[in-house]
Amino acid sequence: MELIEWVGLILGITGFILITSLAWMIKKYHRIKPSIKIMSLFAIFIAPLLSLVVANYHVFETSKEVKSCMGCHVMLPMGIDMLDSNSTSLAARHYRNNWINKQECYSCHKDYGLNGTFKAKADGYRHLLTYVTHTYKEPIKYRGEFNINNCLQCHEGTSVFMKVEEHEPVIENIKKGAQNVSCLNCHGLAHPSSLRRTPGHPDYKMLTSPFSMTIKTKPENEIRDLKFFLTHLILNEKPKN
């Protein structure tokens, strides 16, 4: 467990003990002593509030993790493809080059600044409710447009980016405010195509239960948390035959 989870647990237990003690003391003394008032304040307001803050913070933080995104099984093709060392998708290529070491989904899908955080969380909440109510249809589609500034946040200004003269018209287009050009136009698919993610397609089974997937084996201490999680997720879903 992470520290934040311990803090939340301790706060929760403390609050429970305090409320129980409070109830017992009120029953015993039939009056509210000053010490009980202080305890009441802490038990009824401060501890729950702190718990709420901690819990929210925890949810906000953990929802940035790939594990959280992959919690909805409809997202599995994206995660599994990302780990496939033979995949040519942008996600897999970014994963292989180790530039984004954690929060792989969130790093690319969150826009810049507080507004970006808010939008990402709001969209995550929408995804969650769509998923639990099963009001989606596979293959799922990206809503709206991917913000290419999310690519530029990392790439713009790097020598590799700047030395490619062909980026000039892209920058001009962005400056015009037209944003017709997407990085994905030239650099390929971010994730498996919608056709491959459609139930019934020959690749669908592999993308959702990928025993044929090639994950390069690394020493245990090098296996990152995400790969560990997903590998185990896959192992827990062995095909029934």
Binding site: P169, V170, N173, V181, L184, N185, C186, G188, S193, L195
Partner: peptide, 16 residues
């Protein structure tokens, strides 16, 4: 077009 032969890749001219 992600489902076409070019797997979603086009060039700067096509993008414009």
């Amino acid at each position: 077009d992600e489902n076409a032969h070019n797997k979603g890749v086009i060039c700067i001219k096509g993008a414009l």
